[in-house]
Amino acid sequence: MAKLNINGKSVDVDVDASTPLLWVLREQLGLTGTKYSCGIGICGSCTVHIDGKAVRSCIIPLSSLSAKQQITTIEGLSTDGRHPLQQAWQELDVPQCGYCQPGMIMSAAALLKDKPNPSDADIDASVTNICRCGTYNRVRRGIHLAVDISKRGRS
């Protein structure tokens, strides 16, 4: 039995310790917003935050995690779906099929935590998620718009 902290709640997980975090989230906790696509840590569809940093959850075994770490999934990014990125994404209609978007948003959210006003080069370096529909230009605009939305919220 392992204890984890997911989206601010302590949860018990009774599953083989080699199980990747992605499958713990999806199959033990019913948090299916985090997606499986490549399973080898490349595409980023499974991106979640551990202590605020974006990680590929498909290659992180349960055994490497502790209850002290704060794990955040797309379901826990905001309580009301109004994170600046979610607002920006909605305003620009960023998603197409939408499958990669939870991971894309989580990557962008970690970037904004680290750099509240990222440059295009920062985005290029941090948002390495694959989108086959091709939403990249709206993702970029969405990140910049989220910065504006955050500023408006604070003023």
């Binding site: 948090l31 917003g33 905001s78 779906g81 909605q90 998603p95 939408g98 978007q101 939870p102």
Partner: peptide, 21 residues
């Protein structure tokens, strides 16, 4: 006009085939 299928794609609620229970 805005797409009708955006909101659930932003918060993990959109059910894809892989997510079905």
């Amino acid at each position: 006009v805005k797409r009708l299928d955006t909101v659930d794609k932003l918060n993990g609620k959109q059910v894809f085939g892989t997510d079905l229970q």
